[in-house]
Design a protein around this nucleic acid. Structure first.
Length: 392
DNA sequence: TCTGGGGTCCTAGGACCC
DNA sequence: TCTGGGGTCCTAGGACCC
């Protein structure tokens, strides 16, 4: 019997590894996977990391830090394909797989030990299968709990396994910086540091009430648990990262900041179209429409409005978005980004519309379905949402 | 030369209702 | 004649995760 049945499997530099696995010419070169001029680094191989490049770093900075790096645009179709193959390997070990993202998952191997051996044996088995089949490496953390397994896999990187048995949990956790804990980002880390709480051990030995006063009721309780490694969260099997969504949205950073209402309105239409298209594919409708505006100075605001009834109709979301935008009364403000999000999603079948007499709303739903069909047959370029503008 | 895009959850105040 | 109390919804902002 074992007391460390949770595995956290994390691909090493996933996007960069996949992007270069068939490119021996890039094996000894710093590689960055990332977007265009205003984008950020999605993934960097370990050679690029030696230059200080890391994910989420602005591309402009990354290129400056490592001018010799080869920059590759992301190919999410390939990433998703590799990811689901890896997921199949996981499911051959256990049905208890919780997918975190394309490159990360938790496995509860409690029920697989008799068949496959100790958790470490299972971990090494997975690593070699993934390496042989996909040509990429991963790291595995093994522990009694989800949170400790997650921290252990980070320690195992790259291409390794780290086991933290129960009796060594506090010895493992307490020297770590508070920033390592799940839920502690840059802001919270800085606040905790200001309070003199530098390590996880410091947090563990702080009275719960003090912690909660500093970071809020919920986070305070969570950090206290994590700091003692006492969280008992079970892994919840999920089909994938795109399971039962509570909201759907899209946003876009302009290539150049703009103060042109026409440009903004056109973008809001494009985004509304994109979001509702995804909603219709998923068979959901939503009531609350939120727009997001990011100004040139990066300050960001949101405005939202809850509709009387859930909808998946493009022009209804679009009209709500435009009303919210116009209500801001912006004059010369330069915008960097706009976004549209729909919240309060429910299955479309559960929505029974109150048809208002004289309002042919069903016409718009029919139009959407026609557009969806055309898009499926001829691609997104075939039917442009701008065609909706004239009729509206 | 800055800082993507997809999400989730929490907090807090006011409205509204019982 | 003070000023109740609690639950839920809506809105805005913020922090975090990958």
């Amino acid at each position: 019997m074992t007391s460390t049945p949770i595995l956290h499997v994390d691909m090493d530099a996933f996007y960069a590894s996949v992007a270069t696995r068939d490119r021996p010419d890039l094996a000894e070169v710093p590689v960055i996977v990332g977007g265009g001029s205003r984008g950020v680094v999605l993934s960097a191989n370990y050679l690029a990391r030696q230059y200080g490049v890391h994910s989420a770093m602005p591309m402009t900075r990354a290129r400056r830090a490592c001018p010799t790096a080869v920059v590759i645009p992301p190919d999410f179709d390939t990433f998703a394909r590799v990811s689901s193959s890896v997921l199949e390997n996981f499911r051959r070990v256990t049905p208890l797989v919780e997918v975190v993202s394309l490159d990360e998952a938790f496995l509860d191997v409690r029920g697989s030990i008799r068949r496959l051996g100790a958790p470490t044996t299972i971990a090494e088995g997975l690593r070699s299968v993934i390496h042989d089949e996909q040509g990429i490496t991963c790291s595995v953390g093994v522990a009694a709990s989800v949170s400790v397994a997650k921290l252990a896999s980070r320690r195992a990187k790259p291409d390794g396994v780290v086991v933290v048995p129960p009796e060594r949990v506090t010895a493992f956790l307490h020297p770590l910086d508070v920033g390592e804990l799940w839920g502690v980002g840059e802001k919270t880390q800085a606040m905790l540091h200001r309070l003199g709480l530098i390590t996880v051990g410091d947090v563990a030995h702080t009275p719960l009430r003090t912690l909660q006063r500093a970071v809020g009721h919920h986070l305070g309780a969570q950090l206290h648990e994590l700091a003692w490694g006492t969280d008992r969260r079970a892994i919840t099997p999920k089909a994938g990262p795109l399971e039962p969504e509570r909201s759907m949205g899209a946003d876009e950073t302009f290539a150049k900041d703009t103060d042109d209402r026409e440009v903004v309105v056109r973008e809001l239409l494009r985004l509304s179209h994109r979001v509702t298209g995804r909603m219709r594919t998923a068979g959901v409708a939503g009531r609350t429409v939120t727009i997001r505006i990011r100004f040139a100075d990066f300050t960001t605001i949101t405005r939202s409005r809850t509709l009387p009834e859930a909808t998946d109709v493009t022009v209804e979301i679009y009209r709500a978005a435009i009303r919210l935008y116009d209500a801001l009364g912006l004059q010369r403000a330069r915008l960097r980004l706009v976004g549209v999000r729909v919240e309060g999603l429910v299955p479309r079948a559960s929505v029974h519309r109150q048809l208002v007499l004289g309002e042919p709303e069903h016409g718009w739903a029919d139009a959407d379905r026609a557009v969806d069909r055309a898009t499926r047959r001829f691609g997104t370029a075939a039917v442009r949402p701008a065609s909706l503008l004239r009729t509206y």
